[in-house]
Design a binder for these strands. Structure first.
Length: 876
DNA sequence: GAGTTTGAAACT
DNA sequence: CAGTTTCAAACTC
């Protein structure tokens, strides 16, 4: 009912951090790896931070349906998590509904869109816990309310609804509507049914909405921001209806609750970070872009959240920027789904989508969370998220990360509540939505950009596919078609959410990675450095499946690689490749050898300089590391005393950060910074430290990108990376393994010194700690390289050089690339992370290593032990 | 804006 | 898995 007026108190689930670390570990062991890479769905799942999801790797819609009954399953775990978790998952859902929708099918349309989002969330396997979640939710909500009331008071009028949610799609609704075939012209009966059902639900639930406690178990906390401008929202019942619908969807609310709980875990937190970061970013952007009409701006909300989180150090409040309805200045409503980036924690911590801002509101992003349909996640499947490296971004990111509970899916409820409660003062353009929502702000964006309007919104021109096939860029990107699209008979609209989801599911069933980012961040060791140096190097990204160009010579946008501004790789079957970003023939060379040679001198010099810098900035570095290593200071820190070591330490943290949930790592670290004072300073330090910082940020970006891109693979990669890192025990320099290429001898020597004694220990220690920390270690071989390059070029270089040839066998960056190879994609369904991982590991890593990796999870306990060793060794 | 080219996606 | 067809974007005029 009253959306606006009801100032719903801020509901924050007071999740207690007690077990956070612990959980994190547990999760880490299991989760971190799985986090990675999956179809958008999986990503979303991971984002939700729910390790168990992975356990139920294949949760399809059917499973989801099951989940209702079996909510308990996840619930069991989640409960613990919830309780233990200190984090509040919350999302800010900003829905900008178009006035158009309001008037017309406001109910249906918006609901559809929202519901879609909701459904998606609901659909997530994680959601299993629905029923369970519900109860929990109510409790959580109350708690959150209590906890956050103070904050609310601070906010005064403005309310910020922080919603935790992982949405799970209601299968019921889906069942009704989803099955309708898009091909049926006109609106499918299911739409009607769905709309009707939704309406009914809405009506039924409308009451609930009014009552916050009931409202959304999903909501961990609700901060309602009153916007003076709400008026518009109020205007249309449709708008209200929409939220209701969202809320109304049964499964959703229920499901969300559990998810939230899950997210609370510290370990989960890392996962969540992605989403958070993205959302944060989104918010930030929104803020920047959108004039803040309301007394309370999203930014403020974010800040509030951050403050809250900060207030409760242990607790990380994760705000999922979910959906926020903001009445645009114009009567139009835009539905934004601010989905956290999929992924991977990847979710892009500070990831800034490269996507053009201009996406019109007309293109609502599909919430990736929806299990069934995670469009948002896949939205920019092609695109690889990029992390903004700017210091400012860092800050924002951190906030965002805090704000966004990456893992948390937005509950439709939240949307509703937000819609109702919140007057979206901030006008967040759809652009933002798309951007942010898109997990992958890949290179492909460019492609899409090209097809985009001036605004940067994607447009399609589909005539026969009804925008339900990947021919449609919008569909492929996981977004709804915009009004600006010239498509005919389009079913890729919120109204046809079910259809879209179904279509998507079909695609995914056939090819789990169908919506996965096509561009994998291929970490070229030198990439960052080269960039710094201004040298041209093949882009770090690579197309997973490669192109098949015959005539375009990979110099036109026909070529996906070219389009993505990435070089061709071995995966490409192109003929006469002349890709300016990197030729197929050069691929092996380029990444490692060619560029290395070209840059070797510079690298060395830079490395030297960096080392010097590092030495000078030892403290800073240490701090930097500290923040990331939320957990008890890792040995790496200790090591950091040495400039070189510091560099390593950087690398390590960077890795971790990069790891599936780099963002999280960063954010949580900062947010949690309480653990390490340095953490709080870390940002500043990072910012301040020019090169070192740049390097770090850079590495982070890479990591982040990787993680996202790789995120799908993340589990594997993570493991691999971890493995590589940890392998040191057997092999002193796992890093080396990662870094294939040779490098400066000096560095090598240094690295050896560090590595063998410390390197292995250090890396392991670092990794261990990271793992132990809520933040999952993500290091990948490639990443490590990049980081090394970035941070302390010398060290990594050294490592690489030192790396025994045996290790070299395992293609370092290449391996990562391989992982991304299309074959692998298809081989492992997104959810079967382990399988993929195995395949990957097998390919890139020796079987033995694989096993090692598996053992790795135990690392956390090791860290303490390792530390002493590391010290001793490093001292060596 | 229409037509052609191109390569990915879908299909067999 | 390979070959073919379909499709829509990219490109050209």
């Amino acid at each position: 009912m009253k959306m606006e007026g009801s100032p719903e108190s801020v509901l924050l689930s007071p999740i207690k951090p007690v077990k956070a670390s612990h959980v994190a570990q547990g999760l880490l062991g299991i989760n971190s790896p799985p986090l990675v890479f999956t179809s958008p769905r999986t990503l979303s799942d991971r984002q939700t931070n729910f390790p168990r999801r992975f356990q139920c790797p294949q949760i399809s819609g059917a499973e989801i349906s099951k989940n209702d009954g079996g909510s308990k399953k996840s619930a069991d775990g989640p409960e613990d998590l919830r309780k233990s978790s200190t984090y509040l998952n919350s999302r800010l859902i900003v829905d900008v509904q178009k006035s158009n929708n309001i008037n017309n099918n406001s109910e249906q349309d918006q609901p559809g869109s929202f519901s879609g989002c909701v459904d998606e969330y609901l659909s997530d396997p994680v959601d299993v816990d629905c029923a369970y979640s519900v109860n929990l939710v109510s409790q959580d909500v109350k708690r959150s309310d209590d906890a956050h009331q103070s904050s609310e008071s601070n906010l005064t009028k403005s309310k910020i609804a922080i919603l935790e949610s992982d949405g799970i799609i209601d299968m019921e609704t889906k069942g009704d509507a989803s099955q309708a075939m898009p091909e049926q012209d006109g609106k499918d009966p299911k739409e009607q049914s769905t709309s009707e059902t939704k309406k009914e639900k809405i009506e039924e639930e409308g009451n609930i909405v009014e009552q916050p406690s009931h409202v959304c178990p999903n909501f961990v906390s609700d901060l309602v921001v009153d916007h003076a401008s709400r008026q518009q929202q109020c205007n249309t019942s449709g708008a209200q209806a929409a939220p209701h619908e969202d809320y109304g969807e049964d499964g959703e609310t229920v499901l969300h609750g559990p998810v939230q709980l899950i997210t609370h875990h510290g370990s989960e937190v890392s996962q969540l970070h992605r989403g958070m970061s993205r959302r944060c970013l989104q918010f930030e952007e929104a803020q920047q872009k959108t004039p803040m009409d309301g007394t309370y701006s999203l930014d403020s909300a974010i800040t509030i959240i951050g403050s809250i989180s900060s207030s409760s150090n242990t607790e990380l409040e994760i705000l999922d920027s979910s959906q926020v309805e903001l009445p645009s200045s114009s009567s139009k409503k835009q539905t934004m789904f601010v989905s956290k980036p999929s992924g991977f924690g990847l979710h892009l911590n500070s990831i800034v989508n490269t996507l053009p801002i201009g996406c019109s509101a007309s293109e609502p992003i599909m919430s990736h969370h929806s299990a069934g349909y995670k469009i948002s996640c896949s939205k920019l499947p092609n695109l690889v998220e990029r992390v903004s490296s700017t210091a400012g971004d860092d800050v924002l990111q951190t906030k965002a990360s805090l704000a966004t509970g990456s893992a948390i899916s937005e509950s439709p409820h939240t949307k509703e509540t937000l819609n109702k409660l919140q007057p979206p003062k901030h006008q967040i353009t759809l652009h933002n939505n798309r951007r942010f929502s898109s997990e992958h702000a890949d290179n492909f964006e460019e492609k899409k950009v090209s097809s985009t309007d001036g605004d940067g919104c994607k447009r399609c021109n589909c005539k026969k596919t009804r925008c339900l096939k990947r021919y449609c860029d919008c569909f492929a990107a996981g977004i709804y078609c915009a009004e600006t699209c010239a498509c005919q008979g389009c079913f890729n609209r919120p109204e046809y959410e079910d259809t879209v989801l179904e279509a998507r599911q079909q695609k995914e069933s056939h090819n789990p990675l169908a919506f996965a980012p096509k561009i994998v961040q291929h970490v070229t060791e030198f990439h960052a450095i080269n960039e710094d140096a201004g040298l041209f190097t093949p882009s770090s990204g690579r197309h997973k499946t490669g192109c098949n160009c015959k005539r375009s010579m990979c110099v036109k946008k026909y070529c996906e690689c070219y389009q993505a501004n990435v070089g061709c790789s071995n995966a490409c079957r192109c003929e006469g490749c002349k890709n300016i970003h990197g030729r197929k023939e050069e691929y092996g060379m380029t990444g490692e050898i060619v560029s290395n040679r070209a840059n070797e001198e510079r690298l060395e010099s830079m490395a030297d300089n960096k080392f010097k810098m590092i030495a000078n900035n030892k403290f800073l570095q240490a701090e930097l590391y500290d923040p990331r290593s939320l957990t008890p200071p890792t040995p790496s820190f200790e090591y950091s005393s040495h400039g070189k070591e510091a560099a390593k330490s950087r690398l390590l943290p960077g890795r971790y950060v990069l790891s599936s949930e780099p963002d999280f790592s960063m954010l949580p670290s900062y947010a949690k910074s309480t653990s390490s004072p340095s953490n709080s300073h870390g940002n500043d330090m990072l910012r301040k430290t020019s090169k070192t910082l740049d390097v770090v940020s850079h590495s982070q970006e890479l990591d982040y990108n990787i993680t996202e891109t790789m995120g799908q693979f993340s589990p594997r990669f993570d493991e691999l990376a971890d493995f590589s890192d940890h392998t040191p025990l057997p092999n002193p320099s796992p890093i080396i393994m990662a870094s294939s290429s040779s490098k400066t001898r000096d560095a090598a020597i240094v690295s050896q010194l560090c590595l063998y004694p410390g390197s292995g220990c250090i890396s392991s220690g670092g990794s261990l700690q990271w793992r132990s920390s809520p933040i999952t270690p993500m290091t990948r071989l490639g990443e490590t390289k990049t980081q090394a390059l970035d941070s302390g070029c010398g060290l990594y270089d050294i490592l690489e050089d030192d790396t025994p040839e045996i290790f070299k066998e395992s293609p370092t960056p290449v391996t990562s690339v391989k992982a991304s190879s299309p074959h692998k994609k298809r081989v492992s369904p997104p959810r079967g992370h382990f399988q993929e991982f195995q395949s990957i590991s097998s390919a890139s890593l020796k079987s033995g290593r694989k096993f090692v990796l598996k053992s790795v999870p135990s690392f956390p306990p090791l860290t303490p032990c390792i530390d002493p060793k590391d010290r001793t060794q490093q001292k060596y």
